[in-house]
Amino acid sequence: MLELRLVQGNLLKKVLEAVKDLVTDANFDCSSTGFSLQAMDSSHVALVALLLRSEGFEHYRCDRNVSMGMNLNNMAKMLKCAGNDDIVTIKADDGSDTVTFMFESPNQDKIADFEMKLMDIDSEHLGIPEAEYHAIVRMPSSEFARICKDLSSIGDTVVISVTKEGVKFSTRGDIGNANVVCRQNTTVDKPEESTTIEMHEPVSLTFALRYMNSFTKATPLSSTVTISLSSELPVVVEYKIAEMGYIRFYLAPKIED
């Protein structure tokens, strides 16, 4: 028996909007730790890792570890039927081939349940080693989204370079080239509007903007984004989900042929 009651039901709606274009089908894993997902895109270039910790749910019952295969587009369709203020409960019986999403309006005057068929998914689970990153950039998520969108109108790839001067996002294309430099700025009144750069050594890596733009669909989940870079590892683009966990996107770089 599985029963997870999430008062902030719209969090789940936002999570689905953030991942459904990157991954078609995925296994959601439910354990005493929380509700999680790890999935790669079809070309095995990008990976999404989601964790919603059990403590973040108002009620969390998971009698045994369960893995539920879901089509994310279908799940998003069902969650779109929930109101933004609705409480969402995910329910599944042991051995069942369906999952039920229950939506309750805040004043309990409307209760809906949507039952979705589960699917068997053979997914490859990757071990992600703990790593020291050469540079960690924390900046407003809306600013990062804006930069990715702007640069993708010029070129297909972005070079992210971190030096003591700041973080530079560069692209080039047929019509010209563009550079955006963000300097460390911690003097603003609101911490969510600041940019901080923790650099152990300079790093410069090239990534496909198509994936970066896809990651920025998670912007509504968090006011800040953390970009961790190392010359030997995929970049990590992390959006913290307040009091619940995170959504992390890993992207392999483009390298000189």
Binding site: L126, G127, A252, K254
Partner: peptide
């Protein structure tokens, strides 16, 4: 010319 690589050289399947 830059080439897109996959995640597998970096992460191992478990």
């Amino acid at each position: 010319e830059v080439k897109q690589v996959g995640l597998f050289p970096f992460f191992e399947q478990v």
